[in-house]
């Protein structure tokens, strides 16, 4: 059967063809491709490594900057807190001072009022005493003609004096 007997002509052409293809591709084809692919693979892996390192460095830088930022933020809050505290302190001390001052002034005013009042009272007392002596003199002059009247008057006076004294002590 001719299907299973190789034909010489075709054997010849196949051999020629295959050897030419093999020769050309073995020299200029496949080794070039595989070598270049391997080179590129190395290049890519190296680049990837470099990129990874760069990313790591970048990450470090980022961390550092974050740390710096954090620190700054802490400082900022500290400063603000301190400022607020200082301000409050100032206000408080000012208020205190003002209150003290007011108290002092009030005290002085109160004392002077008290003084004035006592002065006026003693003046009034003196006046009242003078007046009552005058009145008493006049009344005495007019009424104490007889003996009986003198006695009842004296008693009355004593009683009144007693009342006044009590009243006063009561007031105090």
């Amino acid at each position: 059967m001719s299907l299973l007997t190789p034909d010489f002509g075709l054997l010849f052409w196949m051999l020629v063809n295959f050897l030419i293809v093999f020769g050309l591709l073995a020299k200029f084809g496949f080794p070039v491709i595989t070598r270049m692919v391997n080179e590129r693979r190395d290049h890519i892996s190296k680049s990837l490594q470099a990129a990874e390192e760069a990313a790591k460095k970048l990450e470090n830088v980022r961390q550092e900057s974050l740390a710096i930022l954090d620190e700054a933020r802490v400082q900022q809050t500290g400063i603000i807190k301190k400022a607020i505290a200082d301000g409050e302190q100032i206000v408080r001390s000012a208020q205190q001072k003002a209150a003290e001052e007011t108290e002092k002034q009030l005290e002085a005013a109160r004392r002077s009022i008290e003084l004035q009042k006592e002065k006026a009272l003693s003046e009034i007392n003196a006046q009242v005493a003078l007046l009552s002596v005058d009145i008493a003199e006049k009344i005495l002059h007019r009424q104490l003609d007889d003996r009986a009247r003198q006695e009842s008057f004296a008693l009355q006076m004593a009683e009144e004096a007693e009342n006044i004294r009590r009243k006063r002590s009561h007031k105090r």
Partner: peptide, 15 residues
């Protein structure tokens, strides 16, 4: 016989 037959030509084209 080294005629360029159909298969020989096909081989050349494919090559």
């Amino acid at each position: 016989d080294i005629s360029i037959t159909k298969n020989a030509l096909a081989l050349m084209i494919n090559s």
